[in-house]
């Protein structure tokens, strides 16, 4: 199977966007999941709803909201541009769209794993002299690792497949914002593009399979590490 330079560009761009989107949202995902699992604060239900909104809204709507907020003439756009961050019609904007779309999936998996940790382990840790941050770093985080990994993979997979929000927010510019999904869409819109669409489809399937298998292996390893009983 021979891939054209344009197709390679789309593949590398997709991977880069998905990886950056996952990495950048990881700390926020962990914090949000922990807050939802452990803290009670006013407006928690509303906050939970906001986090999950991209999961239930049409992606195009999410993309359009991003455009309103972060577009060149959007709410935060001019300010961000003044400090050198331009998101609209850039690959960074695609990463933002993918991060937002993958965030609810990521948080759900992580929240479950935080909720599954016996709090008495954390209490044992603090009785041994470890403050909150130490307990979080040494006990909570490692025990939640399987869920954090699963959440990250889910977020990554969602980012790879993101189409609607991305194309609405940053359009479909080859070499800048054209991901695999967008490239497949372009191929199907042009006469004689079926072969290219098929090639990229096969690439998508391979990437998805590799990610799934890798997550399975990592998760199994992580679960073994934190298992209480064997």
């Amino acid at each position: 199977m021979h891939l054209s330079p344009e197709e390679w560009t789309a593949i590398w761009l997709s991977l880069r966007i998905a990886i950056v989107a996952t990495m950048a949202s990881l700390p926020f995902g962990v914090l949000t999941a922990y807050a939802l699992a452990r803290w009670n604060f006013p407006g928690k239900t509303l906050f939970n709803g906001l986090v999950h909104l991209p999961l239930v809204m049409p992606p195009v709507v999410t993309g359009f909201i991003l455009l309103i907020l972060f577009g060149r003439r959007g709410v935060f756009g001019p300010f961000l541009a003044s400090i050198g961050i331009v998101l609209s019609f850039r690959w960074t904007g695609a990463a933002l769209a993918c991060a937002v779309m993958g965030f609810p999936l990521m948080v759900r998996a992580m929240r479950l794993s935080f909720e599954g940790i016996d709090r008495r382990l954390e209490f044992a840790s603090s009785s041994l002299g470890a403050g909150r941050l130490w307990t979080f770093a040494l006990i909570t985080l490692p025990l939640a690792a399987p869920g954090i990994i699963v959440g990250s993979i889910l977020g990554f997979a969602r980012a790879l497949g993101e189409f609607g929000a991305t194309i609405t927010f940053v359009s479909n510019i080859p070499g800048e914002t054209q991901t695999i999904s967008a490239a497949i869409y372009s191929f199907t819109q042009a006469p004689g593009g079926d072969a290219g669409a098929l090639r990229l489809t096969i690439v998508s399937i391979v990437i998805a399979l590799v990610a799934l298998i890798a997550s399975e292996i990592i998760q199994r390893w992580a679960e073994k590490r934190v298992a209480s009983f064997e």
Binding site: D118, R120, L121, F123, A124, S125, S126, S127, L128, G129, A130, G131, R132, T135, I139, P142, L143, R225, V226, A227, S228
Partner: peptide
């Protein structure tokens, strides 16, 4: 005084060893 500053050791019924 929060628990981690009390220097009081706890032994639980189910030991609660750190599994990892």
């Amino acid at each position: 005084l929060p628990p981690y500053k009390r220097r009081i050791g706890l032994v639980f019924q189910d030991s609660y060893l750190f599994p990892h």
